[in-house]
Design a binder for these strands. Structure first.
Length: 479
DNA sequence: GGAGGTGTTAAAAAC
DNA sequence: GTTTTTCCACACCTCC
């Protein structure tokens, strides 16, 4: 064994650096996060696609190391007057850092974060960035040719476009994309490719390029752009290289694959619970903030163009149909439909309200826009349909997920025939709104955890992504 | 009425 | 293989 006297000056200096880095990391409380990610990478099973974490990587500008305590975590009500857009960020950072009582975020942490610095993988993410850019160029060309129209493969004019019995899980289509609980899952809106984006409770954003073919990274890429749980992911069909993500800690970032940066779009002391965009508007972001607030961020003016208080408690989802209607679901036990042309600036008035007995986790419009599906902790899935959404039916569905599993959210398939929702027996329940009952349950021996959050591929009928609270993603297909 | 405490639940991590 | 840990939902209970 070498004694310290035999160490070279360089080695001593290096050990000293390591010791000081350890102290710094301990003081910033990120040791646990690193250990967690390293441990997770050791545990992965052979044969299952998984993220791989680089243990050495210590980025210079790491957002998560900033101890940033929001008003909420300090037990104080949110101060909406302090919400800052991009134009005011430097000023906001200065103001906070001068405060003697609050912890001091680095102003750099409030700026853009390079994709390279946010990356946590072992290999290169060059292939992913290339794939995203390729997909974007192709989609933009298609939309240019088709004058912006949507094209869905396999949709027939009448009846359902999907044979339920053919929906299955191929063991090849399983990947561990991030560590921990997934809160959001989205397909990249690209017609000839399956790229799945997820956000987890640690602030990671993971990508799974399903059609990548076998290579070192398994097509799985892990980033860490946020300090807290990722509450929303939005990728507009007509603005493809741009991936918006929001987090509980009050940040909205834009991953621009072209610029290779996670830009900071919006920052607030409030909690951001959900994020959405309208299909006919690429310039505005709709997001929920604090207990019941809903804001519209307008990119053209660089600030919020509207701020409403629509609910008594947090807004869990925001969705739109093509008729200027917006649906919100809230933990106050209601879901509401709003007419955006006539919402009322001061005292917003809903067009329709659905009352559940407990918190409402989601409210999504059907593909036609004529129905609404709500999911509530009161063990029902509500279907609102008919003229003026006057018909309301409540379908029994067990939704008690406990605290470790993300709450269930019923989503629509590729037409108005079916609604998909997870169940506690590691299956996917299919509800028929017409029959007002669960008509089918998809189960697979390969599904080792409960799929709780879903997304239907926007162009490929029968391609359904289910995400679990252990970081796994299942891609069901109907081949 | 609201602050504070607790039970629920499944999967990963640790043993 | 078994036990421990996770802990940013929510509902329900008690106490003040």
């Amino acid at each position: 064994m070498e004694s310290s006297q035999q160490l070279t000056e360089y080695e001593l200096k290096r050990l000293d650096n390591i010791r000081r880095n350890d102290q710094l990391m301990a003081s910033l409380k990120i040791h646990s996060k690193v250990a967690e990610l390293s441990a997770a990478s050791k545990r992965q099973r052979v044969g299952i696609k998984s993220y791989k974490v680089s243990p050495e990587k210590k980025p210079k500008t790491e957002t998560p190391i900033v101890i940033r305590r929001s008003l909420r975590t300090r037990g104080m009500p949110p101060d909406y007057s302090d919400s800052k857009g991009l134009g005011d960020i430097v000023e906001a950072a200065d103001k906070v850092s001068k405060s003697p009582t609050s912890s001091k975020p680095s102003p750099r942490a409030l700026g853009p974060l390079s994709v390279r610095d946010a990356y946590r993988g072992t290999g290169s993410d060059k292939l992913l960035i290339e794939r995203i850019m390729e997909g974007s160029k192709k989609e933009n060309k298609i939309f240019g040719d088709k004058n912006g129209g949507d094209l869905m493969e396999g949709v027939s004019e009448s009846g359902s476009c999907l044979e339920l019995e053919s929906l299955s899980l191929n063991p090849e289509n399983i990947a561990r994309v991030v560590p921990g609980k997934i809160l959001n899952v989205r397909f990249f809106p690209c017609s000839d490719r399956r790229i799945i984006v997820v956000g987890n409770k640690f602030g990671n954003v993971g990508f799974w390029d399903v059609d990548s073919g076998a290579h070192e990274e398994d097509g799985v890429y892990l980033y860490h752009p946020h300090p807290g749980p990722v509450s929303g992911i939005s990728i507009h069909k007509h603005s493809l290289p741009k991936i918006f993500t929001s987090c509980y800690d009050g940040f909205i970032r834009l991953m621009d694959a072209e610029k290779e940066v996670f830009d900071l779009v919006y920052s607030t002391d409030g909690t951001i619970y959900s994020l959405s965009q309208r299909s006919d508007d690429v310039k505005c972001l709709y997001f929920s903030e604090g207990p019941g607030g809903l804001n519209i961020w307008d990119e053209r003016v660089g600030k919020c163009s509207a701020q409403w208080n629509l609910h008594e408690s947090r807004i869990n989802t925001i969705d739109f149909n093509s008729e200027n209607f917006m649906a919100t679901s809230s933990s106050d036990g209601t879901a509401c439909i709003w007419d955006l042309r006539n919402i009322g600036a001061d005292k917003p008035k809903y067009l329709k309200e659905v009352r559940h007995k407990r918190a409402v986790q989601s409210a999504y419009f059907s593909p036609s826009g004529c129905s609404l599906a709500t999911t509530s902790m009161d063990d029902t899935v509500g279907i609102l349909s008919g003229a003026n959404f006057d018909d309301n039916s409540m379908i029994k569905h067990y939704n008690q997920t406990g605290r470790w599993i993300s709450s269930f959210r019923a989503i629509w398939g590729w037409d108005d025939s079916y609604v998909f929702i997870g169940n506690m027996k590691r299956g996917v329940d299919v509800i028929s709104p017409a029959q007002r009952r669960t008509i089918f349950t998809l189960q697979s021996p390969h599904m080792s955890a409960i799929p709780c959050r879903f997304d239907a591929h926007p162009y490929n009928v029968g391609v359904l992504a289910g995400a679990t609270s252990g970081g796994q993603v299942y891609m069901l297909t109907s081949d």
